[in-house]
C-alpha cells in the first residue's frame, strides 16, 4: 500500500492500533443501536482492516449488488467521510425493527428509508464519538445522505468526493444481532491522508 499512503507504509503495530480504535467505535455504535430499537443488541467481535477502496464492494457481494448506504462527511480536527453499508436484506430487517407497523410492506417505504438514514447517522456519530474519546480529537459528522443502489455506484461517489487521493480505507465490519434478528453492517471510515497521520500519532504509533 505504499503509493496509497503517500509513500508511507503502515506497520503491523499501526494496523493493530487502528483495529483497536475501530473496535471501540463499533462497540459504542452497538450501544446506540440498542437504545434506538429498545432491544438487546448482540455484537460479534468486529473485524477491522485496511482494504483497497476498489475491493469494498466485495464486502457486500460485488459492485452490482443492491445495498443501502448512509454517507456522512467528517470535519473538525480531522477530515474524511464515513459510510454505513447494509446489504439489502439486512437493511430491510433493520428498517422493520424501526418501523414495525410496516412489517408487511415488502418494499422500502419513505418512512423506512428515513429510519435507515437516521440509524446510519446515529451509528456513525456513536462510532466517531468513541474514536474521538480514544484519540482526544474532535470529529464532527455532517447530516447524512441516503441511497439504495449498486454498491459500486455508492462507493464510486465516495471515492470521487474524497478527491480520490486515497485508495485504502479503514473498514470495520460489524455483525449485529437484534433480538435474534441478524443484521450485517459495515461501517467504513475514509480518513484523508493528513487525518490518518493525526490519528496514528494520537494512538502513539506515528509514521516515522
Amino acid at each position: 500500500m505504499t503509493d496509497a499512503m503517500g509513500g508511507k507504509q503502515l506497520s503491523e503495530l499501526q494496523i493493530d492500533a487502528l483495529r483497536e480504535a475501530g473496535n471501540i467505535g463499533a462497540g459504542n455504535a452497538a450501544i446506540a443501536l440498542s437504545q434506538m430499537v429498545n432491544k438487546k443488541v448482540g455484537l460479534s467481535t468486529p473485524k477491522a482492516s485496511l482494504i483497497r477502496l476498489t475491493n469494498v464492494p466485495e464486502l457486500v457481494g460485488g459492485p452490482e449488488s443492491p445495498v443501502a448506504g448512509v454517507y456522512l462527511n467528517v470535519s473538525g480536527d480531522c477530515s474524511g467521510s464515513i459510510l454505513l453499508l447494509l446489504e439489502e436484506e439486512s437493511a430491510a430487517r433493520l428498517a422493520s425493527l424501526m418501523v414495525p407497523s410496516d412489517l408487511d410492506v415488502p418494499e422500502m417505504t419513505v418512512v423506512k428509508r428515513s429510519a435507515l438514514q437516521e440509524t446510519g447517522s446515529i451509528l456513525s456519530a456513536a462510532y466517531l464519538n468513541a474514536l474521538g474519546q480514544f484519540t482526544g480529537l474532535l470529529f464532527k459528522p455532517s447530516v447524512p445522505g441516503f441511497a439504495m443502489d449498486m454498491a459500486g455506484a455508492i462507493l464510486d461517489y465516495v471515492l470521487v468526493d474524497l478527491g480520490a487521493s486515497e485508495d485504502h480505507v479503514l473498514v470495520v465490519e460489524t455483525d449485529f444481532t437484534v433480538s435474534g434478528v441478524k443484521i450485517l453492517g459495515h461501517l467504513v471510515l475514509f480518513p484523508d491522508m493528513g487525518t490518518l497521520s493525526i490519528i496514528l500519532e494520537r494512538l502513539g504509533v506515528p509514521f516515522d
Binding site: 448506504g69 454517507y71 456522512l72 462527511n73 470535519s75 477530515s79 455532517s142 447530516v143 447524512p144 445522505g145 441516503f146 441511497a147 443502489d149 455506484a153 455508492i154 464510486d156 461517489y157 470521487v160 468526493d161 474524497l162 478527491g163 480520490a164 487521493s165 484523508d192
Partner: peptide
C-alpha cells in the same frame, strides 16, 4: 455522471467547495 447523495453543506476537496451539494 449520477449524483448518488445529496448532502447539504458537504465539502468536496477536489472541487474546492465548502458548501453546496457535493
Amino acid at each position: 455522471g449520477a449524483q448518488m447523495f445529496e448532502i447539504p453543506g458537504s465539502r468536496n476537496k477536489y472541487a474546492g467547495l465548502t458548501c453546496g451539494p457535493a
